[in-house]
């Protein structure tokens, strides 16, 4: 915050992100570690911040693999330019488990218990959409779960196990935050 007041020009050329509760200040530009104007958020998360849990599959906003939560909403990080995200609070798959204890989020645990994945490439994106859903609606119906995940491509067909897992995680007692 102090830097912002001290050097407004530099601040204008800096993107501030809070990713999984960690603050990042990234310069805008073409240098290593900077954010180029054409960089997508998916690219920045993976290549600049090393958070490779977010997956890129189609890279054109039609498969859901790159889904992260930004300011409480699930978004497609491959269709979001990082320079548009200044000040955003982002949660990625790496931020879902308890950072102190490593304990899995109840949704993650339900996915493990239900084998709610096969190849697992689409799983991080599905989990982030699911997290956004249960944050809004802690006890969704099967229909609501299916609707919320309808933009996610899962080619192995783990759909049934995923819906079961979300139901299981949301009908038992527990805190989904």
């Amino acid at each position: 915050m102090n830097t912002r007041q001290n050097d407004p020009e530099q601040e204008r050329r800096t993107i501030h992100l809070k990713v999984n509760d960690k603050d990042y200040a990234l310069a805008i530009g073409d240098t290593v570690g900077a954010v180029a104007p054409s960089d997508t958020l998916a690219h920045t998360l993976r290549e600049t911040l090393g958070l490779t849990g977010t997956k890129i599959s189609c890279d054109q906003g039609s498969c859901g693999a790159c889904t992260v939560i930004m300011n409480g909403k699930s978004i497609l990080s491959c269709m979001t330019l990082t320079i548009e995200c200044d000040g955003a609070r982002i949660i990625t798959i790496e931020g879902l488990a308890d950072p102190a204890t490593g304990q899995l989020h109840p949704l993650q645990q339900a996915f493990v218990d239900n084998s709610a994945f096969q190849c697992g490439f689409c799983t991080p994106g599905i989990l982030m959409s699911t997290k956004a859903l249960v944050d809004q609606n802690p006890h969704p119906t099967r229909d609501a779960i299916q609707h919320a995940l309808s933009g996610h491509f899962c080619r192995c067909i783990s759909h049934y196990e995923v819906v079961d897992a979300v139901c299981q995680a949301t009908t038992t007692e527990g805190d989904h935050d």
């Binding site: 849990g53 798959i93 899995l104 996915f111 994945f117």
Partner: peptide
């Protein structure tokens, strides 16, 4: 699955 935790945590 042995890799379950790795898959759900990214």
């Amino acid at each position: 699955r042995k890799d379950a935790r790795d898959i759900v945590t990214g």
